[in-house]
Simulated assay, not measured.
Amino acid sequence: MKKILSLLALLLSALMLTGCEDMNFKEGIVVAGGKYVEAHTLNKGKQIYMEYCMACHGVKGDGKGVASKGLFPPPRNFTLGIIKFGDVASGDLPHDEAIYKFLKHGLNGTAMLPWDLQPGQMEAVWDYIKTFAPQAWIGEDKKLGEQILASNDPYGLARKSSAIERGREVYHAVANCQACHMAYATPDEYKAIAKKINNEDVTEIDPEMYKIKMQESEHGYKTMPPDFTWDRVRSANNVEDIYLRLAAGIGGTTMPSWKGTLEDNDIWAAAYYVQSLIDMRNTPARDALWVAIFGEQK
């Protein structure tokens, strides 16, 4: 309770310091995609930002708000103009609707909460946030990325088991996800998958494949890929969400866009497999998998 009260005190102090600032947008701007944003919308967005976002993301949008200390992952630094979860190819600028989704639902396992904002409020605050990175967002020459939409699910519940089995193969022997995440097949299972998919005779197992590897990022800090059976996946709540994340990648990180690299059916299969791993979280099945791989529970 003391921590909550302290945080509230910090938030109130910050709001008092910034609440009297002039709404200094006098003219509208053109942002990526050719959208014209009027000055009154930017001023409205600034007011909403100061109330809901500034405590964590900071007055300057640099992720250094008074409530940011000790948070992991750190609040997003909007001045970089890099969006992690945008439903466009990693590195491209997202369409507004993708951001509204995370404003509405938040990010699992983080301090980014769901916010009860009306559509006009979400549009205003997001348009204001774009002004923190004018080099990326502002100007008629700035383009939005091609929106990645979920294709028709080729599996569905009727073929869920087949999807998971194929996804297991894609994960370990096609996309080689264990290069950053970790392997979830036992050594013997991995050898069998490698033989079936790549006609590869694996004689030695690299123990590193069973470890999560810290990754460099463009966000100013290293990132830790999730253990799908243990950690909460921040931007996905179902198979379709996972498909979109695999297809689009994660901006500013080593997680690439798999759209166009993997067959679409295989992206869906991998999504089903990852969801099956997530479903093991806090279950005996997860403990059994861990014992099968390591001989002991985590």
Rank of each mutant, 00 (worst) to 15 (best):
T18I: 11
G19H: 13
A32W: 05
A32L: 06
G33I: 02
G33P: 03
G33V: 01
E38H: 11
Y49G: 08
Y49K: 14
V59H: 13
K69A: 15
K69M: 15
F72N: 06
F78S: 06
L80G: 11
G81D: 10
I82K: 09
F85P: 02
F85T: 02
E97M: 12
A98E: 09
I99T: 10
F102L: 06
L107M: 09
E123T: 06
A124D: 10
W126R: 06
Y128A: 08
F132K: 11
K142I: 01
E146N: 12
L149S: 14
N152G: 12
S161E: 14
I164P: 08
R166T: 11
V170P: 05
V170N: 00
A175W: 10
N176R: 10
Q178G: 07
A194V: 05
N198R: 09
E200L: 15
I205N: 02
D206G: 08
S217P: 02
T223Y: 07
R234Y: 06
R234S: 06
A236G: 09
N238I: 03
V239C: 00
L246K: 00
A248M: 07
T253Y: 05
S257Y: 07
D266I: 07
R281E: 02
N282G: 02
L289I: 00
V291T: 02
K298G: 10
